[in-house]
Design a binder for these strands. Structure first.
Lengths: 213, 213
DNA sequence: CCTACCGATCGGTAGG
DNA sequence: CCTACCGATCGGTAGG
């Protein structure tokens, strides 16, 4: 239900800048800054967002950002990391909760596309602001992206092996499946009448069609 | 073969800033500026690109951009407009060249995904820099986007009517079809071994699967 | 967490 | 199409 990665519930007053990438309903200043940055980065993009804008949205002075984060990129990194971790965890849970490739694939597509609708701001940051990370941070996040791909590819591979799926090419098909769900973050708008749940359900079925199941 | 919209082959020396959004292999200064801007906008994004960088790539002084374009956004607009026109023309031709919904859909998916690979820079500008246009320019381009959607939706609608296609929901399915092709611009990298042609062929078949044909 | 501020850069213009 | 430049803004820091 939450977009957050697992957060150690440290009530200890550790003001470390490497703090938890909570993002959920936190009301502490660090969480407010992350939420403000998520909104701004998703709406205007990383470079078009000023640290002053983030600070203002969080109710701080222009320099208030730097009390909690070393750089503007650090804010992007925390959001990107938390988003990737959440997405990976979501896919892994979807697979773990089912026991045939078809059910797993439906669950993956349902949960992944729904997530990109519900959390379309973080989704956009994950998918489109990736290139603005530092080299080190990009490399780290890239590892998570490969894990996400691997989870999906594994389901398709097993479905083909069991004869449940018939596909032309596993890699092509996996990529197209993920594309459908990822692109939701681009076109989703909270104003539209389709709910994230309905989108998830539709994409679960579309995913099965793509593998001939 | 070309990414350009129809260009009046004006050899007349009209140095108008409203000149042709050629983008093809033009070697005139305006074309060089557009190509330089396309590279920079696609690689770093609109806001992260400086007019000085564009000018340098085109071999001009820092202020050289303003000889040909009123603002940095004007450059983005010309690229976005030309890209949308090219994409729309491509889809219309694909439909015109075939005479059953299945063949039309395969052609649409093949050409659209191939185009997003071959012209992934312009594709990224079209899909992801859209929000950086001025209100007027965004409205104008939005009309083209709706026409693009309409071409695809019409093919799906006719396929359902003729019984060739079986889909859950026409709008959902159309959106998912376009998503697959559009997302190519996000992940495509000229370094990979898959060619734009191979991607097009694969996506043509994937599109048919999605409509149960 | 704030005030005050700096150095750098940027889009755009003046005036050839 | 260039040189020279301006006004504004921005990320980040000093020093409380």
């Amino acid at each position: 239900m939450s977009s957050a990665a697992q957060t150690s519930p440290s009530t200890a007053p550790t003001p470390s800048a490497a703090g938890s990438p909570a993002l959920a309903g936190t009301s502490d200043t660090q969480g407010r800054l992350l939420e403000a940055a998520a909104e701004a980065f998703a709406d205007r993009g990383f470079h078009a967002t000023t640290t002053r804008d983030i600070a203002a949205r969080a109710g701080l002075s222009p320099a208030g950002v730097y009390v909690h984060f070393k750089t503007k990129e650090e804010l992007l990194y925390q959001l990107s990391l938390a988003g990737h971790l959440a997405a990976l965890e979501l896919l892994r849970s979807a697979v773990a909760d089912h026991d045939s490739p078809a059910d797993e694939l439906r669950a993956i597509m349902t949960t992944f596309s729904r997530w990109h609708a519900e959390h379309y701001r973080v989704g956009r940051i994950v998918q489109y602001e990736f290139g603005n990370l530092t080299d080190e941070h990009r490399d780290e996040v890239l590892r998570l992206r490969k894990e996400i791909d691997a989870v999906a590819r594994d389901v398709v591979t097993r479905g083909v092996a069991s004869g449940e799926f018939v596909v032309g090419d596993v890699a092509d098909t996996t990529l197209a499946l993920l594309s459908m769900a990822i692109d939701v973050a681009r076109w989703y708008d909270p104003e539209i009448r389709r709910t994230p749940e309905a989108i998830g359900a539709a994409y679960g079925e579309l995913g099965l069609r793509l593998v001939g199941a």
